[in-house]
Design a protein around this nucleic acid. Structure first.
Lengths: 196, 196
DNA sequence: CTTTATTGATTGAACGTTCAATAAAGAAAT
DNA sequence: ATTTCTTTATTGAACGTTCAATCAATAAAG
């Protein structure tokens, strides 16, 4: 029963945040979405904070899984292909849909002042950056590789951000296209950045 | 007295949000930052919502002014220079400092579910996009120009976002460098994107 | 019969707003 | 200049609301 309820409540949390935002996502509203009573949340998550942490963990782990799956499916070890897989994983359809994207952004903003969420967000952030950096490193000096990794990560985040804010949601195909195009430009002429 | 207090309270709002986040920025805490009593807020802004709206207006207007100032200072009409000025304006030091950046991101996130803030954010967003698009349009077909504008806007937002979240704050020099480099790449070989 | 699952009313804390009271500042009149 | 009147500025306590957490009671399961 426990794993069922936990999953149910996490899903309900995303639905509630998608509906009214993190600030108005009360335990009662979340519980109603899940079709249970409010007390259950404290029973399975120890309180509202535990539920929010569990929800963020779920999102981050799904995101990591989407990236890992695409990278494992590659037949090649080429850096370009791996970075492309990272891009595609970050725009995986399961991550880009309304509720998940809005919850993600809400957590992102509130992680500025919640140490627990900040830690989770940081781990995920470093993973993306380290992965990108490692692949770029195979094609250019460290300094350039770092700059490329930071820039591509920023573009990915920016596309996410704008996608979460527009009413129509993110056009994941166009986002992928723009990110891949940027990658192509970075790899074609990767000397320009060193002009510091 | 009124303009003094309004300015004072807006500044205190940013300080409070920087300190504890939007969720915990209570009227009492804001008032304490400004050295006044809580009732004053309702007196000058009609309530907490009015104060938040006023604060976001201030940030957006400052940002717009920073961009406009740099563009007006240009001696040339070259698209590249204008886009460069837009980039520099968006990373103006007055906008990038801790309190402003964090407040900006907090509003951004909460604008998903607050119609008033969403309207303000939308106006600003469209302005940035339209400005970029118009300049790119002078150098390439409409379809490409739109793609470039969306991508550059996303990169700018992404750099902002990451800057607001890292404890050290945004390195505005590096952010400008990355954005300018991207711009150079877009203008150097602006045919790649049309391969749709 | 014991453990687990679930409810929903209750509790206490925190918040935004209101408002009567007070202080300060000008304006008008003597 | 002094007094009186009016307006504006400001306070802080009181009020009503909302929320998360608690817990005794109940139901279901093993």
């Amino acid at each position: 029963m426990e794993p069922i309820r936990r999953q149910q409540l996490i899903k309900a949390t995303m639905a509630a945040i998608d509906e009214v935002g993190l600030a108005d996502a009360t335990v009662m509203r979340i519980a109603r979405h899940a079709g249970v009573s409010a007390g259950i949340i404290s029973h399975y998550f120890g309180g509202k904070d535990g539920l929010l942490e569990g929800t963020m963990r779920q999102i981050l782990s799904d995101l990591g899984a989407a990236v890992a799956a695409r990278r494992n499916a590659l037949k090649t070890t080429s850096p370009r292909a791996h970075i492309g897989a990272i891009i595609d994983g970050n725009f995986d359809s399961s991550q880009v849909t309304g509720p998940v994207a809005k919850t993600w952004l809400a957590f992102w903003a509130s992680s500025m002042h919640r140490p627990t969420l900040a830690r989770l967000q940081n781990v995920n952030d470093r993973r993306l950056y380290a992965n990108l950096c490692h692949q770029f490193r195979r094609l250019m000096p460290r300094h350039e590789a770092r700059a490329c990794a930071r820039a591509l990560a920023a573009l990915i985040d920016g596309l996410w951000l704008r996608g979460a804010l527009t009413p129509e949601g993110l056009d994941s195909d166009e986002a992928r296209r723009l990110a891949h195009d940027y990658l192509d430009r970075l790899l074609d002429t990767h000397d320009t950045l060193s002009a510091t």
